[in-house]
Amino acid sequence: MAGVSLDTARQHALSVSLATGAYGLSFGALSVAAGLDVWQTLALSLLVFSGGSQFAFVGVLGAGGGPWAAVATSTFVGIRNGFYGVGLAPVLRPMRGWRRAWAAQVTIDESTAVALAQPHDDLEARRTGFWWTGVGVFLAWNAITVVGALLGSRLGDPADWGLDAAAAAAFLALVWPRLASRRAQAVAGASAVVALALTPVAPAGVPVLAAAAVAIVAGWGHPRPEEVPE
């Protein structure tokens, strides 16, 4: 059974890596359209490596915002990865040196989701899901980002190709499988309403943080499924 669990984790990781990596095409094109060159786009992707934060950064620049506003918004959106680390700590311990630093770099939405989607009593499957997804997305995302950046100047307005909606589509694809319960659907709906209401009046990045706050308040003290007593 252990081998089956590992194979399943690897299959999940591969499919998620390829699907997520494809969105790098959109990011590369949007980054160039926002005023960054190919090398700056690649550096941002390699060092930040958080799709939501990267899209937030180039989104602020593309909307006419200054670099400090772009950095602040990107940082706020990226704070969520620190919370992922808390949930993944029992899965990845013990770990030191370069492995620890590398694990921090690839702690993202997708690696966290695939790791925690594995059976909670199968630590090896969870670790496999995390590493295979994190490294897979890193390689695919950065490689395809370069392609998007190189093509960006030839695509014209990214909105004409629907690439401006890629970030929202990526987040929806990640969240959708977790909306099976009515409670999750209600929280997601409330968060969406708050974000939409604030978008016309709040600075870029604030609606996302407000929506996250709604989810945090709703989930405070609510046990995870595997923590519910039998």
Rank of each mutant, 00 (worst) to 15 (best):
A43C: 13
A168H: 01
S191E: 08
F55D: 05
V135W: 07
G156N: 01
V4H: 08
L139Q: 05
E124T: 14
A202M: 02
L198G: 06
V137L: 11
A197W: 10
F57Q: 01
W102C: 13
G221Y: 09
G65P: 03
S53G: 07
V106H: 09
G97Y: 12
A202C: 03
P229E: 12
F138G: 07
R182K: 00
L61E: 05
A34I: 08
L139K: 00
V206S: 00
W176M: 12
N81T: 14
G221I: 13
A184T: 08
R127Y: 12
G64V: 03
I79N: 06
R126A: 15
S74N: 03
D109V: 14
F27R: 02
S153F: 09
Q118S: 12
A184N: 06
L150R: 00
A43R: 00
A213K: 00
N142K: 00
A19P: 07
V91F: 13
L36C: 10
R127N: 10
V60K: 00
D164C: 04
S50I: 11
R93T: 15
G66M: 09
V58P: 01
P177V: 13
V32D: 11
L61Y: 01
S53D: 12
R100C: 12
W131V: 13
R10S: 15
Q54G: 05
L47E: 12
L174Y: 02
V137S: 06
A143C: 13
S5N: 11
W132I: 08
P119A: 15
R154Q: 04
V86L: 15
A19T: 15
S5A: 14
Y23S: 04
A63S: 13
A169M: 08
S111C: 11
T107K: 02
T8A: 14
V217Q: 00
G21N: 09
P200M: 05
Q105D: 11
A117H: 08
F130P: 08
V71N: 03
L172P: 03
R10I: 15
L92P: 07
A218V: 12
S31M: 09
W39E: 14
S181E: 11
G28Y: 06
V77H: 02
A195G: 03
G134Y: 08
V208N: 01
A190F: 04
A180R: 02
W141I: 10
A210T: 01
A69F: 05
Q11P: 02
S17A: 15
L18R: 02
T128I: 12
S74K: 01
A218M: 06
G85P: 08
W131P: 06
A33C: 10
R154D: 08
L163Y: 03
G129W: 06
